[in-house]
Design a protein around this nucleic acid. Structure first.
Lengths: 198, 198
DNA sequence: GTCTATATGTTGATAGAC
DNA sequence: GTCTATCAACATATAGAC
């Protein structure tokens, strides 16, 4: 337990470098060679820590998913006062989630992977992506239930909220205009919470 | 003009085969070799009609975009009666567009290309994708204006509508559940047109 | 744990005969 | 217009010394 954290420097550099390259160009188009060159480690070193590209991808995509989920939960769980109504209203927390500033032109680090054949053809990687969206949808649905919506409506609107964000990324990248995402989110929020206090 | 249509058999087979392969696995991961083998033509034949992969991709993606835009306009332009209010109400045509049955698990043939590095790194291909979404958003915006919305609201809600469809594809692929798209669309339509006649 | 050298397949494209 | 043969570069590793 004590010694377990000592020798992870190279491994962590490989993972964070892979996360960055995967985010900018996808998993399929990123070669192990690119990762090791950008990390400044040798070939044998990469293959020592990650025998296959799959192993490296699971580590990097897993880390990215955890970070994204943590950020979403920060928005959705409010101030953690544990006092119902004491923090930000539930509906406003969903609005906070969908309106959070995003690097729209870069695309969603996780959502983009659903179009990455190297990811979708790999059972282990696809499961990581699936788990992210299942958990994210569950968190948004729970917050909308807290806001007083019945189960079916909460589920459908949670799907719509997450879809607007994902589609906003697509529109921003397609048009080369990061305001396209903001327009999509504005259009949705105007319908979901016309009185949103912001 | 008369002779121009005679010798296009092989070329068209290459284009439709490329469209199919691009739709199922993306442009980047599809090799010219795969296209010619699936088409049943020889190597020299492909490179005679399309000197580079770029040329083939422009032809195939261009054809896919035209087909997708035609389908969207069929939904959005109503019955073509030219009689304002004589056909389907404008708002219901937008509802018809977002609710049209889609192969959610396959992903959007055009939207998926925004995550395809081979497309986004190629100026000519990216322009084709950009033009598709610009024209689609314009068509949805125009229909919402027709429904009586002011310009800003029409623009924002059009972005939201297209984003929900694109995000619906992402959710369906990510979760492996084609009902995820239907849930997103239901959630959006319930807000956009609570009284939607369907 | 890290290094250099090497292996094997695939990619996008070209050459030149028919 | 179509064919077979070939190519240089790159992808994903593997081998084995240090």
């Amino acid at each position: 337990m004590v010694a377990a954290m000592v020798t992870t420097g190279t491994r962590e550099r490989l993972v964070t470098t892979a996360q960055r390259l995967f985010a900018s160009q996808g998993v399929g188009p990123t070669s192990p060679r690119q990762v090791l060159e950008a990390s400044g480690v040798g070939q044998g070193s990469l293959y020592h820590h990650f025998p296959t590209k799959h192993d490296l991808a699971v580590a990097a995509v897993g880390a990215t998913v955890e970070q994204a989920l943590t950020a979403a939960r920060r928005d959705l769980e409010g101030d953690g006062s544990g006092d119902p109504g004491g923090g930000v209203e539930a509906l406003d927390r969903v609005v906070a989630y969908v309106t959070r500033p995003r690097e729209a032109l870069a695309g969603c680090k996780v959502g983009r992977l659903t179009s990455d054949q190297a990811v979708m053809d790999d059972d282990g990687l696809r499961d990581v992506v699936t788990a992210y969206f299942v958990r994210l949808l569950a968190a948004v649905t729970a917050t909308l239930r807290e806001a007083g919506l019945p189960a079916d409506a909460a589920r459908d609107r949670a799907h719509a909220a997450v879809a607007v964000v994902q589609g906003g990324y697509v529109l921003a990248r397609a048009t080369g205009d990061e305001d396209a995402m903001r327009a999509a989110v504005r259009g949705f929020v105007a319908l979901l919470a016309p009185e949103a206090r912001r």
